[in-house]
Amino acid sequence: MIHAFQLLGYNLVLDVYSGSIHVVDDLVYAIVERLKEVPRDVALAVLTGDSSSVLSDAAPAVISSDSLPALTENHSFTNNSAWNSNLRHELIDTLSSRYKKSDIEEAMNALLALTYDDKLFCEKDPSEKWCVFNQHQNLSISNDLECDRKHRGIQTDGSESCSRDGGNGVVSQKNHESCAFGKADGAIKALCLNVAHACNLACSYCFAGQGNYKGSQALMPVETGRRAIDFLVEHSAARHYLEVDFFGGEPLLNWPMVKETVAYARSLESKTGKRFRFTLTTNGILIDDDVIDFTNREMDNVVLSLDGRKATHDRFRVDRQGRGSYDTIVPKFQELVRQSTGGTHYVRGTFTHANADFLNDVIHLLELGFTQISMEPVVSPTDMPYALTSDDIVFIKQQYEELASLMIQRRREDRPFTFFHYMIDLEKGPCIYKRIAGCGSGTEYLAVTPTGDLYPCHQLVDNPAFLMGNIWDGITNTALQDTYRHLNLLSRKACRDCWAQLYCSGGCAANAFHTTGDLFGVDENGCELFRKRMECGLAIKAAEVLDV
């Protein structure tokens, strides 16, 4: 599968199943555009011009590459040679009006070299549905991972073979197939501690029901926090890095408990050989010198909730008396960032139908001095007045492109900033396991309520259908856990033809549930925006490389 796109003056070609990414000139792009839908052997036939007897894996003499496959008697022949020949002639005729024949041949040879190096026209293996699994012996699913399809022979041809909904009605059979995927040791390595089901703000778009998750207000006792840390260590198997997020509601309402929990976890590090990473998400109201000093010392990341312009922010983020919070929190955030020494911080905003022009909010955050920014589309039922509309989606995609252009411009001016969803690591990104498994919710990551109950994700804590157990008895709803073991890229039918599948890993299950009522559902608007963000992120990478 190939995704070719043009953005911000760059021609990009993404070879989905190898992960290769190429920036190409206009001529090469025109050839790829014409051939991107054809199978590998047809592409080879067209590019070589040897359509009378095309060897699907043999390299023509014109290509110089160390990795060309050896010619053997097992190569298959392409049968529709006349069609291939016509396609080649049609392509050359079309291009000849704009390019010299020698240039066209040179471009085709360059594409041939990439193809023989498995950097273009890579295909999924037809039997295993995933090229990596069959070709590389160092990736052994059978020894390390469970995959129902491999061990139990479950069909992957579109049949509906699984009904793992745990009896709770959160899964529809039509959207998925059975393929469990995850570490066989069942390790839990991350907990989101909802230390406060209470909030000093009353943001109307809050997924947490303005802080108390549609229940009664509660703060997590210190003893529960310590038990949660013990639970995490006990269930972490051989994992070295363990993560604890302090979340809410507003976690600073339970600040002494946060500090004691961190101290307790740190006391276990030398005894257990574990290393804890802590994060904090706050609305900023209660930030003071003590919070700044402690987070600087102990938190690997702090997420600061700020939506942008004052009018934007104060539209939704109000206190219990309906007063906006912008004027209170901005100076506190600026001071926290000014004193920041160790870990990262993100100013994280939400944009809605009311500010689809969110780029202006990003620019405002830059004017305030913030340079690590995240701005996320609201996730809500479609009947909410702030929900994004189909017209908004079109406009937001334009905003994303303008944002990417601004990032390139400011980097060239030596005034760079980061935008969370454009930070694609091409040198040291996630491995194929991680790309298939996704975020790990419900398996290696769980949320803990103030009373110690366990849920698969912080965004599903208000729904009793997702109660998984508690930190004293462990996972008791094993059927639901099994559902989450099946929540991966391989199980999602809708993702199979999507070029971005190995960047989003099937997307956020909680978002899918909130928009479709099905954990395996597809948040169409979310997918469309994600793909645009990936294109923007890749175009920014192209600019970085070509500017050198």
Binding site: L139, E243, P430, N511, V545
Partner: peptide, 15 residues
């Protein structure tokens, strides 16, 4: 252009 932190899309993460 060979077998990590928990991610929350609301998967740039960096052996």
């Amino acid at each position: 252009l060979r077998d990590c932190q928990t991610s929350c899309q609301s998967v740039n993460q960096a052996q």
